[in-house]
Design a protein around this nucleic acid. Structure first.
Length: 433
DNA sequence: TCTGGGGTCCTAGGACCC
DNA sequence: TCTGGGGTCCTAGGACCC
């Protein structure tokens, strides 16, 4: 068995550039929610020394002449572009395992199934059809496919595809790979390895023993160590069911009012229940967490979260919102300026196999709630997000001018550099003169 | 002034059981 | 006074990923 990986280059930035060809060869960055941090950078921005995760205000200090073009994150656009790329990969190789919004593994029987010219051709086709540049790596394990992919990205000569298919190539690749470029070795492990005099993937494999790796880095570290030697041990999970679903946001403006926080939490809960229904599953545990602004030392700090086990696993909006509000009531503390809140649903199972409780007094009510959520979903999918929602989700602030169309979920969010939703909204299509 | 959001898996330790 | 041994399950926190 052989693994391949298709990884989109600087994905969010590349999505923006498809519709703004004038931004080729210029430093471009895409920001996280709230225009908080930099989460995607063009090569030109990387070359300027702008690090991943840098707060946006630092960039503005550094780049006073605004040489860098910034975008707020446009997830609707990125999601649609991702779908296009994934479809093209699926067309040319059968078994694909999407790993994240911008990368997908695929499985081959052997190296002959996709020699270098064929892989390079796939990368070229994806670029031609979608405008997104990608890199492809192929090797005997997923970790090595990742490594190969880095080489494909780094060196033009590879024509966007690198294959590690021999002992010599493997040896060379490992000795040229720095530890921080190894998939599975993170920031915390680097100092420990450095102390042992280990700086490359090759050192890691050769100088450390099985037991030593197991002891220092646990099972995860051991898997990485083995995969680097060509021993396949990371499973190809294609489980569509998420094991936990989280909806959380930081607020552009801090919130202290209970009712305002309650409607925000209700919106996060409603979003979680929507995601649950979308993947046809139900959850039995609901968690709510709230926190103050950890970067503001002069303010009183408070962070708390609490979980609740429901009698029966559910996916309807009413029950998940109501549980979330109860939890919020228990952890809410007066006089705190809250910066972030969120709802997590977990203990997830498919909705086809609901274990009903022996003494479920609310069965009839639950049935009604399930039907109501289904109807709300169908109305909203035909008429737009949040045409109908629970009253508690609406802002309580009397001065607020917001309508159902722009309520609190997106209201307390900063998005000053948003591009158009070119591919999914008739009103925002690209205009060509 | 301004510091993201959404996941997974593993591990250690506590509670509890016989 | 002396206070076993073996197991499971749950949870919080850590580390990692994109």
């Amino acid at each position: 068995m052989v693994y391949g990986l298709v990884d989109c280059n600087n994905f969010f930035v590349s999505c923006e550039r498809v519709f703004r060809p004038d931004l080729q060869n210029r430093p471009v960055v895409v920001l996280s929610n709230n225009d908080g941090c930099i989460v995607s950078r063009s090569n030109e921005a990387k070359a300027m020394g702008i690090p991943m995760g840098m707060p946006y205000f630092r960039l503005r200090e550094l780049d006073s002449k605004s040489e860098v073009v910034s975008f707020s994150s446009n997830y609707v656009l990125y999601g649609d572009m991702s779908h296009r790329v994934m479809s093209l990969i699926a067309e040319s190789v059968g078994n694909i395992y999407p790993y994240s919004i911008d990368e997908s593994f695929f499985v081959l029987d052997d190296f002959n199934q996709m020699p270098h010219d064929k892989a390079a051709e796939l990368a070229k086709r994806i670029l031609q059809y979608t405008g997104i540049p990608v890199s492809i790596g192929i090797a005997t394990t997923k970790t090595l496919a990742k490594t190969a992919c880095k080489f494909a990205k780094k060196y033009k000569g590879y024509q966007s595809a690198c294959i590690i298919d021999s002992e010599e190539k493997l040896k060379k690749a490992l000795s040229l790979t720095a530890l921080n470029d190894v998939w599975g070795i993170g920031r915390r492990s680097l100092p420990k390895l450095k102390n042992c005099g280990i700086t490359t993937a090759s050192d890691f494999v050769q100088k450390m023993t099985h037991d030593c790796v197991r002891k220092l880095f646990g099972l995860g570290g051991l898997h990485t160590w083995m995969e680097l030697q060509g021993i396949d041990c990371i499973a190809s999970e294609n489980s569509v069911l998420r094991q936990s679903i989280c909806t959380s946001r930081s607020f552009a403006n801090m919130v202290s009012d209970y009712n305002q926080l309650e409607s925000l939490v209700a919106n996060f809960a409603a979003q979680c229940s929507r995601k649950l229904r979308k993947q046809h599953s139900v959850a039995q545990t609901v968690t709510v967490f709230i926190m103050s602004n950890r970067f503001r030392d002069e303010l009183e700090q408070y962070a708390n979260g609490m979980s609740m086990m429901l009698n029966v696993p559910v996916a309807n909006t009413e029950e998940i919102v109501s549980a979330s509000c109860k939890l919020l009531k228990r952890i809410f503390k007066n006089g705190i300026l809250y910066k972030k809140a969120g709802v997590v649903v977990s203990s997830i199972t498919p909705d086809s196999a609901i274990q009903t409780a022996l003494f479920d007094e609310n069965e009839a009510k639950r049935d009604r709630n399930d039907k109501l959520s289904a109807i709300i979903d169908s109305i909203n999918s035909a008429n737009g997000h949040d045409t109908i929602c629970l009253a508690i989700q609406l802002p309580t602030d009397k001065d607020s001018k917001s309508t159902a169309d722009s309520h609190l979920f997106t209201q307390n969010l900063r998005r000053e550099h948003m591009s158009q939703r070119y591919t999914t909204s008739w009103e925002e299509l690209l205009l060509v003169k």
